[in-house]
Nucleic acid binder design. Structure first.
Length: 110
RNA sequence: CGAGCGGGCUGCGCGGCCGCGGCGUGCGAUCAGAGCACGAUGAGGAAAGUCCGGGCAUCACAGGGCAGGACGCCUGAUAACGUCAGGUGAAGGCGACUUCAAGGAAAGUGCAACAGAAAUAGACCGCCUGCCGAAUCCCUGUUUUUGCAGGGUGCCCGCGGGGAGAGAUCUCCGCGGCGGCGGGUAAGGAUGGAAAGGCGAGGUAAGAGCUCACCGACGGGACGGUAACGCCCCGUGCCAUGUAAACCCCGUCCGAUGCAAGUUUGGGCUUCGUUCACAGAGGGCUGCCCGUCCGAGCGAAGCCGUGAAUAACGCUCGAGCCUAUCGGCGACGGUAGGCCUAGAUAAAUGGCCGUGCCAGACAGAACCCGGCUUACAGGCCCGUCUCGGAGG
RNA sequence: GGGGGCAUAGUCUCAGUUGGUUAGAGCGCGCGCUUCACAUGCGCGAGGUCACAGGUUCAAGUCCUGUUGUCCCCA
């Protein structure tokens, strides 16, 4: 799971510049095919104070974790949309929907 | 029973599955890593605001003066403090108790709008009193002014008594009013945050600390207390308002910068230097001055930019925590025993299910401590505590 | 993480003296005049919890303390 962290600043800016953007009800997902799978979450100050921001990041990581194993190698940014309430279920459902639509998930066992 | 006051504690619990941070052990084994398994461990009372105080680090071993800043009843605690404890005083509350940046306004300067007669100082009204009823007022001239001269307007009202006169009326005295001028006074006066100690009595023409009692103020002395201060006695007739979170004075304290401090390792370029001495420029040490250091020994300084806005160290054992005991009213300190309790770097604590009354407030470590301040759902405990009601 | 600044009318730009009684100016907005009409010009007018909460003072936009928002700097 450690290897999934996307840290390099230039990687993030490259993904933001030339990656493909997918929109869902609760979040925006940006991805760029790469040799290794890595992801990052974007939660700035506009989402609230530190406790609230940390909570959003945890929910996003937890939701993405469920799909990481089956993902084709690419770099992914997760950007939530500002709203009153956040939940694990909504994030998980939307990530699954977006990844399935782009056919990024390998058929497990195929 | 009701309403309060003060103090303290806690800050969802349990079970299951999946997942995260660094650490240890083992496996693994590379150019360097990584990865896997197991184990214990992993946010707060405020981690927050960054308002104070320290440690620590660099600048110089932390220097002198000015400027600047902070604090301000007393005593103590402490590494230190603007914090804490115990007291003093003042204000508030029936009370338990609470609150207070609480030195100096006779060292000096500034400010005090509006209102009000008057604002740090006085006489507008009023009160009392003396003289007067062309008192006065207006104009002109003159004079430094007071004033003087001339002209004009104009000669107060009521009551009582006496006198003169035939009467109309005139005149004198007393009292009162009205008015004019002068003097006394600071009792009273619509204001104001503040009005020349307060209140009562005596006193007086009216008044006034003018005199007296009480209270207050000021000065001196005795006693108690380490002290702030308290209390008592004596004296002074009483005199200078407020503001120092205005400048200021007095006392105490403060070097600057802050872990993005700073330390370690490697590359390139430029500049300086010629080993001593002197001088000048520059830079650092604080805003200024002084003073001082650097400017070297084959190095130094500056810049660039790569590793690298992903290196390592600093980075967690510390004025540490827990228990017992002793000293102290207490803050706190001593002794003994025990314990090791996050160290991340886009940054770790979450998700789902079950369950317990309710879906659980404020909120997330970033070098570390001591405080302060601010935010906070709910729950629990303590007290010879206070007030009110009822019963015995 | 650490250090520092700012907040006054309408998401505008700013004054406001040593605390003093009515918080002003420009642009904008509204109305009227001018024009055939518009622009310009002229006149009049509205519009303020001085970011919020306490305190000092007789009196606070101003002084002090806390809170909130916003901006800048530091490897």
């Amino acid at each position: 799971m450690k290897c999934l962290r996307l840290k390099k600043a230039n990687h993030i800016t490259a993904a933001l510049r030339s990656g493909k953007r997918l929109h869902a009800e609760t979040l925006t997902l940006v991805y760029l095919p790469a040799s290794r799978t890595a992801f990052a979450v974007c939660v700035g100050k506009k989402y609230g104070k530190s406790v609230r921001r940390n909570h959003i990041k945890r929910l996003l990581r937890e939701a993405f974790r469920g799909y990481a194993k089956d993902l084709r190698p690419c770099r992914v940014l997760l950007i939530p949309k500002v709203r009153e309430e956040y939940s694990y279920h909504a994030f998980s459902r939307d990530i699954g929907k977006l990844l399935g639509r782009e056919d990024l998930l390998e058929k497990h066992g195929a």
